[in-house]
Design a protein around this nucleic acid. Structure first.
Length: 948
RNA sequence: GCCGGUGUGGCGAAAUGGCAGACGCACAGGACUUAAAAUCCUGGGACCAUAAAAAGUCGUGUCGGUUCGAGUCCGACCACCGGCACCA
């Protein structure tokens, strides 16, 4: 304990937390709900005992925290940073007259509970519930104004029923490229017969093209099914995926960092498996372009842009040169390039080792070398393949392609620096103007031909990758010579298109979202598998009425030895009477967090994931724009979303994707879920002198609360610095704001009565009675119901102005320092006007809600007040007239250097100020004997005399 | 390598192009106290000077530029943090 307790927060804080709970003070109301008698919100707006419509309710403000994963370790000081910021703003917006939705919940599916289950046999539900209990107790002890009636838990059957329901929507939808939006799969069923007519529209789609092989020789029904299944937003594919042996599951691209699992850091390998995927790639362009409609930081938007990775270029077809023995069909190799202007410099080609044409084109002489290389590449981990500064490797296939503009034969190689998963899995190599191709060509002695002249003739053209002027780029039909890169691109692309050799193309790095996991503790897929007459396996969705689909009971949560998910152990559950079987994969943890912000709007609705009325009121209506292609919405959605940067790409991209699907299908009315988003910085460890960069998650808030209380903790979290910055935790710093709260307390409370209170507390035997002892405390006799002086009003209104502006700009640290300035000043007043102190309490209340409620109640017991509840008291407005100064102190500079500060009437004109400045005794020595060239007067601010 | 961000006292930080360091921590001195804790008051960027001061000089990562005036704007560079990384 660091000295005497500043004020009895240990009694005040639980008292008010219980009061808020009992009164449901911070409950938010949906349109149509009846507001109870005596509720402070109902009282403020005159809604007591009334049902209110959306139009009657005050304008909404939806302020959202990223809900936590309730780990066994409990809360650390990093969690409450964002929560405190949003709570302050929630309370501020209530005061400003907004109807605030401020909910909290639990992202509770996850690996730790499952791994604990594997070790101990304890059901993950038990572990999860225990952790939630701890988290909830800790979060409640901080006095946040959450509406707990809307609490959600992603592992609750009443919640994941709707997660499964949304999956069915994805399953039963397809992406219509013509309308650029998701549509019900029924519409596609009608259109399947038209497929031949719409080939052009769909020619883009690899999965349709690949069907030609799959569907060969099958029945018409089977073909129809293949076509439909291949276009669903949730689809099954046999694809190489990241398999993590130690975790016993596959992982999404986003969960693999540097060739290791994000969770646990275990090695991962590529392995072909049958998996569920979500077609997020269809939304790449909208996910990219709609970033312009939302208010996120540039760095965050940039991370999403990079992840989506749009690049514009061209696809070019290269014919494989007819080989000695084969005759009829020469295959075509399609490449993607962002530099079609360098086509004349393409002196060889490279296929990824996995490219499907490799086996077909390889010559018998090279067969062994190629197969050896393929095995070598497949055996490499991702880390080995992408390791920095590694040597390029590759082998020649023996085959040649024909460069379509030079007509020359160029060798075809395979190399693992070409990725199967990007573009077409094949490149045209232009060694003169691409770093990687250049390196490769040097190593394997391939020819390097200049086709771009750098703008600066001194620059070496070898390895020059920037824009320049095309050279050596002419054939009988076409010349690019002399054209700047950008124009050369246009010209060659047009030429390729006219010849049917290629076309303008856009590529994205974004891959489809691998959506299945081999885990127990996740949402089961509402899918069953059947066989058709020919014995082919196919899938069907369960009807909505079958939801929620619960996971089976298990004794052993491990995956099966043959790599089947744990659910496969439950044979009774898997095998259905009609011979069909259940899907045994589960959904990834991201599924539940993709839409939780929507469930908060109507958390207990048993009939819908959210009612249209609730969605409309809290997310806002979209204005219907005339063009059906428009995906823009003019409305905000969540007004403010605060959380850590660790979710910059994963959660935030997935949630935007789901939201857009729900938007397309008409279930939500905004194209974007989170209008404004702010990332709080990381709190670093305390031992900063060792330059420790570790997160401050060793500091347990419980210990801080025991010693300083929740109000001081909240205040310190905000006072450390700007919300967005990372900063080191310093427990000593908590004492500073704690002392500030003590000063506030002493400003309001009579010292004598406090001594009595403290003595009574030490002698009172029954701790239950302690709280009643708070009644012994009396108001400070210096507080009187008097008219404030002009100076007092000025101090108050300057504080109102600054705190209001700072809250609007989320500058909590400077708002707090301004209130410190106020208290340092006001505590000296011999007579403290009750009206001034009352307004000050409203300003401080969002930051330190407990102590202000107690002081507010004390003040109310002696003076007439306007509102009975501080939580819904109206925010004060500053009066600019009160801030006007009669006399100003104006700095005087000579040649930009400060020489004096003079006093002048606020309305003094420039000539008066100039004269006064020159008359200053301190200024004179610096201008004597010099010529005054000019005098700059910034009214009310500054005078600068320029003298030489 | 590419993209984004940040560099200000011993520390956390503050400053619409206009008095750099508000507010707080730590520290030092004083008051109160038998004493301590708590509280209250005072001090504080560096240098130079001095018994003490005043005055002065320098000072916001480095170098340059724009401007009457730059922590703030522009250019080049350095360091650190975050993200991406053989993406054709």
């Amino acid at each position: 304990m660091s000295g005497r307790r500043q004020y009895p927060f240990h009694l005040i804080e639980p008292k008010w937390q219980q009061h808020w709970d009992a009164q449901q003070t911070f409950r938010a109301w949906n349109p149509g709900e009846v507001l109870p008698q005596g509720h402070p919100f109902a009282q403020r707006y005159g809604f007591e005992n009334k049902a209110v419509t959306a139009a009657q309710l005050p304008p909404k403000f939806y302020i959202l925290d990223m809900f936590p994963y309730p780990s066994g370790a409990g809360l650390h000081v990093g969690h409450p940073e964002g929560y405190t910021a949003t709570d302050i703003l929630a309370r501020y917006q209530r005061a400003r007259g907004r109807h605030v939705l401020h909910p909290m919940g639990w992202d509770a599916f996850g690996l730790p509970a499952e791994q604990y289950a594997i070790k101990t046999g304890q059901h993950p539900r038990k572990t999860t519930e225990a952790n939630i209990t701890t988290f909830k107790r800790q979060i409640k002890s901080l006095g946040f104004s959450y509406d707990w009636t809307r609490e959600v838990d992603t592992t609750d059957t009443n919640y994941f029923k709707w997660t499964q329901w949304i999956f069915l929507k994805l399953y039963n939808s397809y992406f219509d490229y013509f309308h650029n939006k998701a549509m019900p799969i029924e519409l596609l069923k009608d259109a399947v017969s038209e497929i031949p007519k719409r080939q052009t529209e769909w020619a883009n789609n690899d999965y349709l093209n690949s069907l030609r092989n799959v569907t060969r020789g099958e029945s018409e029904d089977a073909i129809r099914r293949h076509i439909i299944d291949s276009r669903r937003l949730a689809f099954v594919t046999e694809a190489p995926v990241w398999w993590c042996e130690q975790l016993g599951t596959v992982l999404a691209n986003e969960e693999v960092i540097d060739g290791k699992s994000e969770v646990g850091g275990f090695p991962v390998i590529r392995r072909p498996m049958r998996q569920w995927m979500l077609r997020i790639t269809a939304y790449a362009e909208r996910l990219l372009s709609d970033l312009d409609t939302i208010d996120w930081t540039d760095s965050l938007k940039e991370m999403q842009r990079n992840w989506i990775g749009k690049s514009e270029g061209a696809e070019v077809d290269f014919a494989v040169a007819a080989s000695r023995q084969s005759a009829a069909e020469t295959p075509i190799i399609r490449v993607f390039t962002t530099r079609p202007d360098t086509l004349f410099g393409a002196t060889y080609m490279v296929l990824s080792p996995e490219h499907k044409l490799v086996a077909q084109i390889t010559t018998p002489e090279q067969k062994k070398a190629v197969e050896d290389y393929k095995a070598f590449a497949a055996g490499k981990s991702d880390l080995e393949r992408t390791e920095l500064a590694k040597e390029k490797t590759g082998v020649f296939t023996g085959a040649y392609a024909i460069n379509p503009v030079t007509d020359k034969q160029i060798p075809i190689w395979i190399a693992d620096y070409v990725l199967a998963s990007y573009g077409t899995g094949a490149i045209m190599a232009v060694p003169a103007h691409d770093e990687r191709d250049f390196e490769f060509a040097k190593k394997f002695d391939l020819s390097i031909v200049q086709v771009v002249q750098p703008p600066d003739p001194k620059t070496d053209w070898q390895g020059f990758v920037d824009d320049g002027t095309a050279v050596n780029s002419a054939s009988a039909e076409l010349s690019l010579n002399g054209l700047p890169t950008q124009e050369a691109k246009k010209k060659i692309t047009a030429w390729l298109e006219s010849k049917g050799l290629g076309k303008k193309t856009i590529n994205y790095k974004l891959r489809d979202w691998l959506f299945s996991r081999q885990r127990y503790w996740g949402e089961p897929f509402p899918i069953i598998w059947k066989r058709d007459a020919a014995g082919n396996l196919y899938h069907e969705a369960l009807p909505e009425s079958a939801l929620p689909l619960l996971p089976p009971k298990l004794d052993d949560y491990k995956p099966t030895p043959d790599g089947q998910p744990p659910l496969a152990r439950a044979q009774d559950w898997v095998n259905l009477p009609d011979g069909s079987t259940r899907e045994t994969n589960t959904m990834p943890q991201w599924a539940g967090s993709c839409w939780y912000y929507l469930r908060y709007l109507d958390a207990k609705n048993p009939n819908a994931f959210v009612s249209p009325e609730a969605e409309n009121y809290w997310m806002g209506k979209s204005s219907t724009l005339s063009s059906p292609l428009s995906t823009k919405s003019t409305t905000p959605g969540v007004d403010l979303y605060v959380g850590g940067t660790e979710h910059a790409v994963l959660h935030l991209l997935y949630a935007r994707f789901w939201h857009k699907v729900l938007f397309d299908l008409g279930y939500v009315t905004t194209a974007e879920p989170f209008f404004k988003l702010v990332n709080q910085g990381i709190i670093l460890g305390e031992d900063n002198q060792k330059m420790s960069k570790s997160r401050g998650n060793v500091v347990n808030p419980d210990e801080i609360l025991v010693e300083y209380g929740a109000d001081a903790f909240r205040l310190y979290e905000m006072f450390m610095g700007p919300l967005q910055d990372s900063k080191p935790w310093n427990t000593k710093g908590v004492e500073g704001v704690y002392r500030f709260l003590g000063r506030v307390w002493r400003m309001f409370i009579d010292e004598h009565s406090e001594t009595e209170f403290e003595q009574a507390e030490t002698t009172a035997t029954d701790p239950q009675k302690h709280r009643e002892l708070l009644n012994l405390l009396k108001l400070n006799p210096s507080i009187k119901d008097v008219q404030p002086t002009a100076a007092q009003l000025k101090t108050l209104h300057a504080t109102i102005k600054k705190v209001t502006e700072d809250l609007d700009g989320m500058r909590f640290n400077t708002a707090i320092s301004e209130m410190m300035v106020f208290v340092n000043e006001a505590i000296k007043w011999e007579t403290k006007p009750a009206s001034v102190l009352r307004e000050f309490l409203i300003l401080l209340a969002p930051f330190a809600p407990h102590v202000t409620e107690e002081l507010w109640a004390k003040l109310n017991s002696s003076f007439v007040i306007r509102h009975s509840s501080l939580s819904f008291a109206e925010w004060p407005k500053h009066d600019p007239a009160l801030l006007i100064e009669d006399t100003l102190e104006i700095p005087v500079q000579v040649n930009g250097k400060l020489r004096d500060v003079i006093k002048a009437p606020a309305d003094a004109d420039n000539a008066t100020l100039e004269a006064a400045a020159q008359a200053s005794e301190k200024v004179k020595p610096f201008i004597d004997g010099k010529t005054i060239k000019k005098i700059i007067v910034v009214p009310k601010k500054l005078i600068n005399i320029v003298a030489v």
